[in-house]
């Protein structure tokens, strides 16, 4: 207890960082989770979409700045870049996956693995290897001084407010969209039982296409939102994808709320680890995943599938 009161301030700080990093994790993982729900394939190329979204947002931001666009424009441009990447790359990748949808799941997964390898080099050919930076949004929003324990700690307003804000909005929009709109209900129907949904006259192919495109745009948005806070280098996609996998499996497949809760656990877990036992930070997501799956083999929010005989 004495330890807790001594370290309460530090843990308060860790919570702030944890929330912001949870928001970043959620933005990447939720798209993957959505796509898994309808296509039943873990999209390895999701990591590439993240990276391309990040690079595109940075390029667009730099281009706008060079053209003399006002600084506030850099924020909406992040969303524009993500939407563009989703629309341009989403549909062709979905078509490719549909070509293999009647084959073994492992083949579909490898299609995305192959795409990942191709896109990894494509990024390098387009953006080179020199770290790319466009931090106008972070600069624009400035810092916020958080008074804590007689000290004042400056935080980036972008990371403290904007990232969690966008994540909450996305969560709310997805939950509303899935529960309350016709499209959302059709999507849930396709997710639950594709054949039955088709029999009811739902255009499953179109639902899948739209969902995949949304998922791709969300991946790109995750990258675009992360881009102002970091330097973009080759290989960022590979590192993102494993983390998203861990979130998806822990959450339960296709579960949006589960993805949110898992991201929160992982974000907080990692930032607490930095204060308490930094060496554990890297393995936190996997430990959480193993712990959750031990108790609930179908994931936190997953539903046990009935075995088809």
């Amino acid at each position: 207890m004495a330890w807790l009161s001594d370290n309460a301030f530090l843990l308060g700080l860790a919570t702030l960082d944890g929330l912001s990093s949870a928001a970043a994790i959620f933005m990447v993982a939720v798209g993957l989770n959505l796509v898994f729900g309808v296509l039943r394939v873990l999209n390895v190329a999701h990591g590439s979409l993240y990276a391309i979204g990040a690079y595109s947002a940075a390029s667009l931001g730099l281009f706008a700045a060079a053209r003399g666009l006002p600084a506030w424009a850099s924020l909406p441009l992040l969303v524009v870049a993500a939407a563009l990447v989703g629309l341009v790359l989403g549909p062709p990748i979905e078509r490719l996956l549909r070509r293999t949808q009647d084959q073994e799941p492992v083949l579909q997964l490898l299609v995305t693995f192959a795409l990942f390898m191709i896109l990894e080099d494509a990024q390098k050919l387009i953006w080179g290897v020199r770290p790319v930076v466009s931090d106008a949004p972070v600069k624009l929003m400035g810092t916020v001084d958080v008074p804590i324990g007689g000290d004042v700690i400056p935080f980036n307003a972008y990371q403290l407010f904007l990232l969690p804000g966008v994540a909450l909005l996305t969560l709310a929009a997805l939950v509303y969209g899935l529960r309350r709109t016709l499209f959302g209900r059709m999507l849930v129907a396709v997710t639950t039982d594709r054949e039955a949904a088709r029999a009811l006259g739902i255009d499953a192919a179109r639902i899948t296409l739209v969902t995949f495109t949304i998922g791709a745009a969300l991946a790109a948005l995750g990258g675009a939102l992360a881009s102002p806070t970091t330097s973009l280098v080759p290989g960022i996609g590979a590192q993102t994808i494993v983390l998203s996998f861990a979130v998806v499996a822990t959450a339960g497949l296709g579960q949006v709320e589960g993805a949110a809760l898992t991201s929160l656990l992982i974000g907080l877990g990692r930032s607490f680890a930095v204060y308490l036992e930094p060496e554990l930070e890297v393995v936190v997501p996997y430990l959480i995943m193993v712990a959750v799956l031990l108790v609930r083999p179908q994931g936190m929010f997953g539903v046990l599938e009935t075995r088809r005989i």
Binding site: L96, F113, A114, M117, E120, K124
Partner: peptide, 20 residues
């Protein structure tokens, strides 16, 4: 040397699509 991943990925993709 710059794009060996792209080549490997393309080979895999072609095999899956045309010779599963």
């Amino acid at each position: 040397a710059d794009a060996w991943q792209m080549i490997l990925g393309s080979v895999l993709l072609l095999v899956i699509l045309f010779a599963p």
